[in-house]
Every structure is written in structure tokens, then in C-alpha cells.
Design a protein around this nucleic acid. Structure first.
Length: 261
DNA sequence: TCCCTATTGATAGTAATGCA
DNA sequence: TGCATTACTATCAATAGGGA
């Protein structure tokens, strides 16, 4: 696997790049802020924050960034990108039909990996091939999952609900409040509750409970921790509460369930 | 006797909901 | 989006059974 370029770029001045003759490698680009015009399907399309672009070798590529100063939503444009080649990428790309453009919800994991990849490739020694390869593979797989889990339809509401789900998954193992979840995606608590219900059919706390129970089940099967420790690890505030929720969900107390497995 | 687990009742605080 | 009301969650405390 060979990484040609990988970095985070921020444009406060106009920027153009044209490879109409076709790319020589894979090019993935995630718009972080601002907007850019990119050649898609033969014409220039506006790409907004949260949108991911994936181009294989041979595909025409053209980008035109015109930062709009203080105008809201049209300030500096920022993105993560990488250009790479390699047999693993070829195999990954051919596994299924890849969209050229996808709107994804990132809770920080993708940008985190992308940032690490950029740092590693920036090293004077060129970076460790093993680390670069592992990071690039992890990044591609995370992008694949993000594309798969992206809302098939719906506007910003579906995307916000997805971000709320990601927040819950990341924070279910500790006590968190609706205010925190709502603040994480930048909306009010009331709107977060309504939006989540509308998009998923359930409540935020119900979803957190599902995540906690799933983790508790894995810990019960794969660890020697006591049930009290498992309740704590999984994010239940007390064993008493864990016991009650578990029994309501599975019909048997956690102890009996564990002995049965 | 101690530890782990199971169970229940009471209660405070928080989330969900509907409406303006 | 904020507010008021209702419903529910989460916690605490107490108690009991089983096994080492």
C-alpha cells in the first residue's frame, strides 16, 4: 500500500485543481467545513460539510474552492483527504459498488484516524509501512460503515439522529444527560428528544439501555467479572437497577441467565 | 460468617410528551 | 424552542437465600 498524499487542508483563498485526464490513484475527501465545487457525474456539484467523496484511479477529478469571506456558510473550506494506491485498496474497492458521494455522520472516530494517518505519513522517515497500512485499512472500513449507516433518505434530521445515536454508543457506559447529548449535536434537549423519536421510533434513554444491556451480555459471556462489576462497567448505576432492567428484558435474573449460558 | 445474588418498596430526579 | 405536566428511570435501603 502506498500513500501518495494525506493531510487536512484549509483554504481561506481560492483554490483550484484539475485532473480531467484521470486520477492515477484513489482519492478520498471528507468536507469538514465550508463548501467546495467538485466534478461529479460530468458537472460541478456543491459539496457540503459531512460529505465524503471517493474516486478510483482513472476517474476525472476537478475541484474549485471559492471561500466567501464572512458570508455565513461560505467561509473557509476545510477537508481531510488522502491519495493512495495498493492491492488492498483495489480489493476493498471491488468488494462492492462504492458511491462517489455520501453524506456521513462522524462522531470523531473517522477524523481521529484520518488525523493519525496524516501525522504518520508526515514523518521524515515516511512513516511505518505497517502503521500506515493499518490506519488506512481502519479508515476505509470506518468510512464503509459510515456510508452503510448513513440515513438513506431524509434531511438534516436523520443525520442529527444518527449523531445522537453515535453519542449514546460512545457514552452509554457512564451516566449522561439529555442536555449533554443535545449539546453534542448543537440542538435543544426538546428537539433532540422529538427528533430521535421521530427518526428511530424509540427514546434516547431506551437506546442507551439497549447498548448497556448488549455490553453487559458480552461481559457476562466473556469475563469473570461479578454481576455487580458488570453492571458498573456497562453503565448501569447500580446492580439493583441492572437486575431489574435485565429481568424485564429477558425474563430471568442475570445470575440465572449466566449459569444457563 | 461472608460474599454474591435476588427482590421489593419508597422516593427524588429526569425524560418524554403535548401544546403554545 | 420553551414550558408545564405526566410518566418513568434510577437510586437507596432493607431483607433474604444459597454456597463456600
Amino acid at each position: 500500500m502506498s500513500i501518495v498524499l494525506c493531510d487536512y487542508s484549509r483554504h481561506e483563498q481560492p483554490f483550484q485543481q484539475s485532473m480531467r485526464g484521470g486520477l492515477e490513484c484513489y482519492l478520498f475527501r471528507l468536507q469538514i467545513e465550508g463548501q467546495a465545487s467538485v466534478l461529479l457525474g460530468g458537472r460541478m456539484e456543491t459539496v457540503l460539510p459531512g460529505e465524503l467523496l471517493l474516486f478510483p484511479p482513472g476517474e476525472a477529478y476537478e475541484i474549485d474552492i471559492v471561500p466567501g469571506g464572512d458570508e455565513p456558510g461560505h467561509g473557509a473550506s476545510a477537508d481531510y483527504y488522502f491519495m493512495a494506491t495498493g492491492s488492498w485498496l483495489d480489493r476493498w474497492w471491488q468488494q462492492e459498488a462504492r458511491p462517489r458521494r455520501a453524506r456521513i455522520a462522524d462522531d470523531g472516530k473517522i477524523q481521529g484516524i484520518w488525523h493519525q494517518l496524516a501525522l504518520e505519513s508526515r514523518r521524515l522517515d515516511g512513516g511505518s509501512p505497517e502503521i500506515l497500512s493499518a490506519l488506512l485499512q481502519a479508515l476505509c472500513l470506518l468510512l464503509e460503515r459510515a456510508i452503510r449507516e448513513a440515513p438513506a433518505k431524509g434531511g438534516p434530521g436523520a443525520l442529527l439522529a444518527m449523531k445522537l445515536k453515535h453519542f449514546v454508543e460512545a457514552h452509554a457506559t457512564r451516566a449522561f444527560t439529555l442536555d449533554e447529548a443535545a449539546a453534542h449535536v448543537g440542538i435543544s434537549k426538546t428537539r433532540a428528544v422529538h427528533l430521535f423519536k421521530q427518526e428511530t421510533g424509540g427514546s434516547i434513554m431506551q437506546y442507551a439501555q439497549q447498548v448497556r444491556l448488549a455490553l453487559a451480555l458480552r461481559l457476562m459471556a466473556g469475563s469473570q467479572l461479578t454481576l455487580e462489576q458488570i453492571a458498573d462497567e456497562a453503565g448501569f448505576g447500580s446492580y439493583t437497577y441492572f437486575h431489574r432492567v435485565f429481568r424485564e428484558k429477558y425474563g430471568v435474573p442475570p445470575g440465572a441467565y449466566r449459569r444457563r449460558e
